[in-house]
Amino acid sequence: MEDCLTVGGVNLKSRLFIGTGKYASDDLIPAVAEASASEVITVALRRVGMGQKGVMDYIPSGMRLLPNTSGARTADEAVRLARLAKAAGCGDWVKIEVISDTRHLLPDGYETAKATEVLVKEGFTVLPYINPDLYVARACIEAGAAVVMPLAAPIGTNRGLQTKEMIGILIEELDVPVVVDAGIGRPSQACEAMEMGAAACLVNTGIASSDDAVAMARAFRLAVDAGRAAYLAGAGAVRTGTEAVASSPLTGFLR
């Protein structure tokens, strides 16, 4: 049986989601997408005429678009952006991102859960970007989120799995896939997240800010595949010598 990640009824073979921001040139995006073998790619919505060119022409056909709601500071704004994205005809997936703290760019869990609830009722497949907070994750799932996307480290920092313990708790406790988003800067970090049982990783800055984005996209693909394979294989015992307990202080009374 093929190992697929199912999100909103869609089977994905690749467990690497990529972004479209921060590239030296958008011309790189097709080659990055190909090297990553990714099937899911994120985009943002902005007003036209703000000095940014549209990105759609660079995205390979057949990739599933995951529009985010970046720029939203409240649940209402996120809902509004999601509806606009859907009207653009790119499907019903949306990554909810509600950030009102521009200094640290940390997501607002309360507003995120509220937006999730509204959008699920409207038929969206909702992927909320959250702090790895069990209560926020549960609130989003209760509201109908298809996955949760906890941050590994503050967005764009490339600092790796700073929140490892908390993400481990989400993986252990939740019934939905846990997609690690934000902060993963190195393939080794993505591999570690996958080994822990993360369902997928979303990597943008880690690829876009490298010297060779296409080569790095390939490296991330290999790392995510390796981590997944290791998770499925089940890691062997780390500790040694557990067998070599000479006496039996706890169970000796049984003899």
Binding site: G168, I171, E172, G234, A235, G236, A237, R239, T242
Partner: peptide, 12 residues
């Protein structure tokens, strides 16, 4: 036996 030892080394 190997599986048992592996489980004993794991947290969750």
């Amino acid at each position: 036996r190997a599986q048992v030892l592996s489980v004993l080394g794991r947290d969750h």
